[in-house]
Each structure stands twice: as structure tokens, then as C-alpha cells.
Design a protein around this nucleic acid. Structure first.
Lengths: 225, 225
DNA sequence: TCCGATTTCGTCACACTGTTACGTTACGGC
DNA sequence: GCCGTAACGTAACAGTGTGACGAAATCGGA
């Protein structure tokens, strides 16, 4: 009973493709519900039926990037030297970010501490992160990163590759050759540093460690463990 | 001749304060030209007279963050150990980012490779970056970072602290204590890595280094030298 | 076969947004 | 006084995300 639905999987895929195309061609402000719907030849109703709201559409797009992320990470072959393998993983992250530059920004905006574990994007990101942790564990087991924990290393590497990707996509790292060299030098320096035992706490001398304002959101999240 | 202007420096400051307040209280989407103007008790005309357009208002806000950045960097005292001084500078960056969490995002969005050198925000960022390079040079002169250039080190550190700040503001680094420890461990690992001579090129084994799509914008920028 | 119930669709309206054109107001010089 | 001029407030325009509502299409049952 009821009307046969036309806004099915096919329309959904078409909307996502149109949104991605619009995003990569004209940037984020160009992607509006009306334009995306017009591009596909349907109405705004389809977007709201299939994705709930505009943010749902963007979330679905982010999931696409997360999938690219996962693929780029999981296709990195195992190497005898786990440290060299981490370099490959970092360049896999870079490749995923550069593959869809405008999508990367909306992807990273979706990553939040209060992410819903049921959200498919969550499990995809977790798989990418876990792929890295897997290699990190091999380094730890081999005694290559003395005095480190897998999560310390994971957060460190995550911050570094995200920072590099973020700067490169903003054009701050110069041309492609310069950017690539910055990636290589940075990742290798980071890994060389992890091989050194951490120094004693030794607090910095400024009061900078206790910021006055702090976001009120409770702690926790995917990478907090 | 002409009407006496009311949209002067005072209105300008009030608009900036209202925008900053609105931004930190309700987030970026809450800051609209009309709301900011209403908050001050003036009209949208004032915004357009003083800032040109909405982006001009946001640019002025970014300049405020850039100024905080500069202050936090330049107030870091000189230490006998330049490497330890870099740790302080990194925590200065963190303090500036955490001081105005929502502003940091609009600030970093303003940093682009095609930034206008006449833009005050450009010179402010340059001063912060130069403050770091100054200490980096001391490390290089002391032979502490063998085989590195000041710009290699500068880009590396910039990517790291931006990545850390970006993740922490998204709540991904856990509670404040965990985040602070991640900062300390990461920065110290990075510095330990810089003390090791860089390894030979040794290209990664995936095709990830030559991304298919690349942004068409020409190379160059503030940190490219 | 026809009708009513149900579900989905297309369209429109609402409250917004950034921005610009226009009429009004207030001043200085004559 | 008056006029030119500069800055002002207002209103309109095109565009946004989204909720409400009527129309269309499909089913089970009479």
C-alpha cells in the first residue's frame, strides 16, 4: 500500500555523485540542496527523504572520503621494516586527502569526539586508524619505539598527517614537489624521534599549559583511549 | 562637507567584539551580518562601510587571533636550550588556539597561499613564524638539527602544532590532561627526531606520491621559501 | 470495477542569509 | 537661507535550509 517510491538507491547515488562533483568543481559554498537536486533532475524533497537534511548529505559524502581513506590504508602492503611501512601509510593518508581536496575538509569536520559509533563513518575511520595501530604495534613489539604506547604514537601521527594535509590543501606547502618533500622529511623525522626514548616531563616555563578557556564538551572520543 | 560619520573606530571595535562574542558563544553559523549589527545596536550598513563585506569582518577577527598568536610567541622567553624553547613556543601556539577555539578555525581558513602581503594578518603570522625560525636557527647554528634547513623544520613544526590544535579543538585528543600530554610527547618526539640526521630518500612503495588530481592553484606562499 | 486508505512526491511558504540600490538625513560652504 | 555632498537607514533582490500541505500514485477490500 502506498505510492511506489522513486527516491531509492539510484537517486541516492546520483545525488551523492552530483554533490561530490559540485563540491570538487565549485567548492563547498556552491553545494546547496536545490542545486544538487536540480543537477540530478529531481526535487529537494529527494534529499530530505534520503538524507534527512543537508548535513546528512554531507555526512554521506564524508563517508565516501572515509572509505577512500580506509582503502588507501588497507592496500598498503606489509613490509619487513614496520617503520618504513608507517611512511607508506602516511603517504596513503596524503593520497586520500589529495584525491578529493574539497571533500577532505568536510570529512574532517565530521570527525568529532561525540561521534556516533553506529555511524558508518565512525567504523571506517576506526579501521584506518586501526590499520596504522597494527603497524605501530609491530614497532613496539620490536622495541623500536621505547617508552611509547600505541595510542601516544597514534595520536602523534594522526596530528602530523592531518596537519600536513590541512596545510598542503591550503597551498601553504608550496608546489607538489616541495610539499611531497615536506611530507617525507616530516614523517621520517617523526619516526626517528619515536625511536628515541622520551625525555622526562620537564614542564615548559610559560603558563601556556593551563588555558583560561576550555571547550565545555565532555572528554572522550574515538582516539582517546 | 557631508554628513558626520558615526561608523568610526568605536563602532568598528564594538562590531568586532560582538562578532567574537557571538562566535565563541554560539559558533560560526550564528554570526550573521544582521545579528552582529543588531547586537551593537546599529545597522548592516555599518558592517559594509567598515569592513566591505562579511568576509572582511571575519578577516578582521582573524587578525585578532593572529595578534594573539604573535603575542603568545613573542612573550616566550629566551632559554639557554633552544630546543626546550621550541617546546615553549609550541605550547604558546596551543594557548593561542585554545584561547579562542571558534576563532582559530576562521583564522586558519584565512591563511592561504595567495595571501596578500599587505594584509595585516600576513605580517602578524609572519612574525609568529619568524619568532620560531629565530629559535630554529639557534638550533641549526649549534649543530643540533644536522642536515636540516630552517624552512624544513619550520614547515614540520607548523604542520604538527596545527594538526594538534585542530584535533584538540575537535575534542579528539580527549580531556585536557590527555591532550596536554599528547602535545608534550608529540613535540618532544618531533624535536628528538630533528636531532637525528635525515635518512636517505628511500621512496615509499605505493604510487601514493603522485596523486591523480592536484589543485590547479600555482605554487608559492608564505611558508614556501 | 470502483473506492478509500496510505504512502510518497512536488510545490509552496517561511524565516533566514549576504549584498546592493535608493531615498533620506545631516553636515560644510556660499 | 540654500545647495552639494557624504554617510546614513531601509527596503528589495536573489538565494539559502526546511516544514507544511495538497496532489498523485499505489494498494487491499467491496
Amino acid at each position: 500500500m502506498g505510492r511506489r517510491r522513486e527516491h531509492g538507491e539510484q537517486t541516492r547515488a546520483a545525488l551523492l555523485a552530483a554533490a561530490a562533483e559540485l563540491l570538487s568543481r565549485e567548492g563547498r559554498p556552491a553545494v546547496s540542496v536545490r542545486r544538487v537536486a536540480d543537477e540530478v533532475g529531481t526535487t529537494t524533497r529527494a534529499v530530505y527523504s534520503l538524507f534527512g537534511d543537508k548535513e546528512g548529505l554531507l555526512r554521506a559524502l564524508s563517508a565516501d572520503v572515509a572509505e577512500t581513506m580506509r582503502r588507501r590504508h588497507e592496500e598498503v602492503p606489509e613490509r619487513d621494516d614496520p617503520v618504513a611501512e608507517i611512511v607508506d601509510l602516511a603517504f596513503g593518508y596524503r593520497a586520500a586527502a589529495l584525491e578529493k581536496p574539497n571533500l577532505y575538509a568536510v570529512f574532517i569536520d565530521e570527525i568529532r569526539d561525540n561521534a556516533d559509533p553506529a555511524d558508518p563513518i565512525f567504523s571506517l575511520v576506526y579501521r584506518s586508524f586501526d590499520r596504522v595501530l597494527q603497524t605501530v604495534r609491530r614497532c613496539l613489539d620490536a622495541g623500536l619505539f621505547p617508552g611509547r604506547t600505541e595510542f601516544d604514537v597514534g595520536r602523534f601521527l594522526f596530528a602530523l598527517v592531518h596537519g600536513l594535509a590541512s596545510l598542503e590543501l591550503r597551498g601553504i606547502l608550496g608546489d607538489e614537489a616541495t610539499a611531497r618533500q615536506t611530507w617525507r622529511l616530516s614523517v621520517q623525522a617523526a619516526l626517528a624521534g619515536l625511536r628515541q626514548p622520551p625525555s622526562s616531563p620537564g614542564r615548559p616555563r610559560t603558563g601556556a599549559t593551563s588555558p583560561t578557556r576550555r571547550r565545555s564538551r565532555p572528554a572522550g572520543g574515538a582516539v582517546s583511549g
